[in-house]
Amino acid sequence: MSLEDKLAARKTELVGKWGDVILATYPAETQKVWKRQRDRFANPVGVTILETAQNLFDLLLCWQDAEAIANCMEMLIKIRAVQQFSPSQAISFVFLLKKLLREELGDELRMEGAIEELMSFETRIDNLALMAFDIYSKSREQVYEMRIKEIKLSHRMLMRKADMIADVAAPTADK
């Protein structure tokens, strides 16, 4: 039985545990609320964590579509990028999978002498981390861009009044 098969067989269990350790990065009382409330509008964070863990796990196993993987992670990373986390904490959820797999499968594979398999699988998780880092950086950049855009928008008429904008889009010839 290959590692992929083992993972696929224990998917529900592993996904559940992964979701739990991601939730565990939040305060205890928050975890309970987010775990229990399944309404995606009343509890977007909890639902996103569980959905992401589920979908990402499948994508990791087939490991074909990089774009799909990035899309799958995007919402969760965006959420964590604006929450009270340091950058490392924000994308730690990827490494938590690595930790989980070692805990769950490490001994078994070592006994079978197949620990190499896990290590090669882990390169996928490493790649996942790099992608997560990209998305995280992009999200942070976006936050700063939005701050600039907001200031620009809130003053557009004033800039115009102060004659500070040469509006190239407006046709000047017929004025």
């Binding site: 399944r38 309404d39 509008f41 639902v47």
Partner: peptide, 13 residues
């Protein structure tokens, strides 16, 4: 009641 995913129990509490 509202659109929701997952088990209905979520609302019971």
């Amino acid at each position: 009641a509202s659109l929701h995913e997952g088990p209905v129990v979520a609302y019971a509490s």
